Amino acid sequence: MGKQKGSAAHSFMAVVAADLKTKQLCKRLHSHHIAIIDHPDVDEIAAQSLLERGVKVVLNLSPFMTGQYPAEGARRLLTNGVTLYEVLDVDVSDSFMEWIEGKYATILEENLYIFLEEKWVHVCRLLQVTVPSVLNRWHEAHDKLDDTLSSFIDNTLLYASKEKDLFLKPLCHVRLHTKMEQRHVVVVVRGKHYKEDLLTLSSYIREYRPVLIGVDGGADALMAAGYRPDLIVGDMDSVSDRALQSGAEIVVHAFVDGTAPGTTRIKALGLPCHVLPAPGTSEDVAMLLAYEKEAELIVTIGAHTSMIDFLEKGRKGMASTLLVRTKIGTKLIDAKGVSHLYRPSESWKLWSWCIVAMLLPVSAALVINPIARHAVHMIWTQWRTWAL
């Protein structure tokens, strides 16, 4: 850094918003920002979050697609008109993100400059990511998919063998106010198609009134759909303060040794919580908790189930998910993608019956009431006169 920029046309100029965690950045990101992330293999959920914030330019300190697997995030951003750059010569660190946060910046000829001490200062070189370059990487990753899958399965089975005893034991006892015994439970995770699936299951939720569990940001997904979560389970890194203060019971997922960084945030908000040390992911813990509280049925929305799902989360295996789903068995129903299988629609027959139901009382009134009959006769006569 230190090279002053000469006079030339700016290709893009805005304030920088930077964070090593994309989901944290999206909480404060606006359309007038240049977003700087450090997110290898940007996934669809991260891409959707960036799009919802209206961002126009995204700089990534890591490759948008490494070629490890066919990640879809970069393609989705590009097809929605977002300009993407990869940063070429900056060391990834918290200090860099903190230093550049809030600075006024511009991009010119694949170089990033910031306005510092009354002059433009060169920060780093950039490489623009294009649709053809992403497609090339995507095809390379797709060709290696069998090898990636083989490695993923080996890793899953290895850790499943090592961790099985942890999942055979019951969870630590948590005295919940939320009763799940012999009730349906819906566990919502912000995974692929969670919005569509939540909308598709709205009739089921209205009819059965299940216990609603939001896994971290899943609580916000429930609130956005018009529901209040009964229980929030997670490490509390992606759920909003609004959801935490909604009145839901809070269970902080802790490491097996009892360390629970998420409690710091909960205490700062002055909220009560339970701490639950457990292995696996927070969505695994939410399912196990419902199972051990004797829920009649557990329905998951947006849960991670496939290899791509877990690779997108930076995991090289899914041992805990395999063990949890094997343990819960037939009580578990995964609603992921159900919106693509079934899309509720109002048929013409239903509308016909609604119209008939509305006309019946009107017709009855006309038949019974002589004044109404006389009024209708006068309107009919007037219409015939006008028509002639």
Rank of each mutant, 00 (worst) to 15 (best):
A387R: 01
S49Q: 10
T79M: 08
S240M: 09
K293A: 11
D94M: 10
M97V: 06
W386H: 01
T130W: 04
I379Y: 00
T385F: 00
T259C: 05
K56M: 09
R175D: 14
V186N: 03
V121R: 11
T305L: 13
L341Q: 08
F152N: 07
A71D: 13
M97L: 14
F115Q: 10
T326P: 00
T83W: 05
T321Q: 12
V42R: 03
V16P: 04
M1L: 06
L289G: 01
G314E: 04
A9E: 09
I266E: 09
V239A: 07
T200W: 01
A160W: 11
D257Q: 08
L366G: 01
L323A: 07
I100V: 15
P277M: 03
A105V: 02
L269K: 07
A372M: 11
L271G: 11
W386C: 01
V55E: 04
T200G: 01
C26S: 12
H39P: 00
V188M: 02
E72D: 13
K267M: 07
S345L: 06
M358A: 14
P361S: 01
K5H: 09
K169A: 12
D241E: 13
S7P: 01
E294I: 00
T22M: 03
V215C: 03
A248G: 08
S62H: 12
P361R: 01
A295F: 02
A335S: 13
G329Q: 07
L323V: 10
V55K: 05
A8T: 13
D41R: 06
L297R: 15
R343E: 10
V356S: 06
E109T: 11
V57T: 15
T130D: 07
H340P: 00
N111T: 11
L289V: 07
D43Y: 05
A335Q: 07
V356Q: 03
V189F: 00
R325L: 02
A71Y: 08
L50N: 03
S203D: 12
Y104N: 08
C124R: 00
L222P: 13
V356K: 10
L59T: 05
A46F: 05
L145D: 09
R190Y: 01
L271M: 11
A254P: 14
V215F: 05
E86G: 01
L51T: 03
A46L: 08
E249A: 08
D165Q: 13
N136Y: 14
S95G: 02
Y104I: 11
L51E: 06
Y227E: 12
T130Y: 05
K313L: 15
